[in-house]
């Protein structure tokens, strides 16, 4: 028996918005410690890794490890039926071929349940090595979304260049060039407004706008985003999900032959 009840059901709705453009389907690996999801996008350029810890749920029970293959467009249709203040429960029997979503309104006057068929997915699981990154940049998530959106008008790629002075995002194309420089903030009233750069060595890497823009669909999950870079390895774009976990996107750089 698997059962996970999330009082802040809106978080699950936001998680779905954050992955559904990138992935058509994904396996939810449910275990005693919580729920994990790892999946590559269709073109195998990026990887999504979602972690929801059991402690973040109001009620969590997982008697046996369970892999639930879900069609995300179907799951998204179902989660759209939940109101933002609904409590959401996911449940499944051991070895079941369906998962049930239960939505409870805060005062319990409306309770809906939706049963969805599971699919068998034969997805590759990638090993992500523990890495010490050369540059770790924290910035407001809305600022990052704005930068990706603005620079996408100029070209298909964004160059992210991190030095001890700060971080520079650049794009170039037919209409011209664009550069956005963010300096590390000295003092801020709110921590979520801060730009922080932790640099061991300077790094410059180039990434496809298309994917960066899809990652920014996670912006409503967290006021801050963390970018981690090292030379010639994938960028990590991480959004914390309150006290429950995180979503990380890994994006392979564009590199010269």
């Amino acid at each position: 028996m698997f059962e996970a009840r999330l009082v802040q059901g809106a978080l699950l709705k936001k998680v779905m918005e954050a992955i559904k453009e990138l992935l058509n389907e994904a396996s939810f690996d449910c275990a005693h410690s919580g729920i994990l999801l790892q999946a590559m996008d269709n073109s195998h350029v990026s990887l999504v890794s979602l972690n929801l810890r059991r402690e973040g749920f109001d009620k969590y029970r997982c008697d046996r490890n369970l892999v639930m293959g879900m069609n995300l467009s179907s799951m998204s249709k179902i989660l759209k039926c939940a109101s933002n203040d609904d409590i959401i429960t996911m449940k499944a029997q051991d070895n079941a071929d369906t998962v049930t979503f239960v939505f409870e309104s805060p005062k319990q006057e409306k309770i809906s349940d939706y049963e969805m068929k599971l699919t068998n997915l034969d997805q590759d699981h990638l090993g992500i090595p523990e890495t010490e990154y050369s540059c770790v940049i924290k910035l407001p998530s809305a600022e990052f979304a704005r930068i990706c959106r603005d620079l996408s008008q100029f070209g298909e790629s964004i160059v992210i260049s991190c030095t001890k002075e700060g971080v520079k995002f650049s794009a170039a194309g037919d209409i011209g060039t664009a550069n956005i420089k963010l300096a590390q903030t000295a003092t801020v009233d709110k921590e979520e407004d801060a730009v922080m750069v932790d640099m061991q060595e300077p790094v410059t890497l180039t990434f496809a706008c298309k994917y960066l823009n899809m990652f920014t669909k996670a912006t409503p999950l967290s006021p801050q985003v963390c970018l981690s870079m090292s030379p010639d390895v994938p960028l990590v774009v991480e959004y914390k999900i309150e006290d429950i976990g995180h979503i990380r996107y890994y994006l392979a750089p564009r590199i010269g032959d």
Partner: peptide, 14 residues
């Protein structure tokens, strides 16, 4: 000219 690399070039399939 830059080429887009696939993610499994960096993270091998387990």
């Amino acid at each position: 000219r830059l080429k887009q690399k696939g993610i499994h070039r960096f993270f091998p399939v387990q």
